[in-house]
């Protein structure tokens, strides 16, 4: 799976939770919670959806590696290529 594919899916799932966010306007290295205005419930929903789509466990212990858009994309990339 290419980096682009992964990002496309990530954007899809983020938009499901935060449909009002324009991706060009966010800082991809900024804190995901702040940039997308999501709370812990939203984040759990996102992780649940991504874990299903990528067939990953995405354990809670890895949450610190998923704290920005880019970090999350890299995290998925590292495990799916």
């Amino acid at each position: 799976m290419t980096n682009q594919d992964i990002r496309k899916i990530l954007v899809e799932e983020l938009h499901r939770i935060a449909p009002d966010i324009v991706l060009d306007e966010i800082d991809p290295d900024g804190d995901l919670h702040d940039e997308f205005e999501i709370d812990s419930m939203d984040f759990l929903t996102l992780v649940t959806a991504l874990a299903k789509r990528f067939a990953l466990e995405m354990p809670e212990a890895d949450y610190p590696k998923m704290q920005s858009f880019n970090a999350l994309a890299d995290y998925l990339q590292d495990r799916k290529t």
Binding site: S40, L44, T48, A51, M58, E60, A61
Partner: peptide, 17 residues
């Protein structure tokens, strides 16, 4: 919460809330 979630897939995890 951390201990409970450690062995659980995301859809079974709990939150402090």
């Amino acid at each position: 919460v951390t201990e409970t979630n450690a062995q659980r897939p995301p859809d079974k995890r709990i939150l402090l809330g």
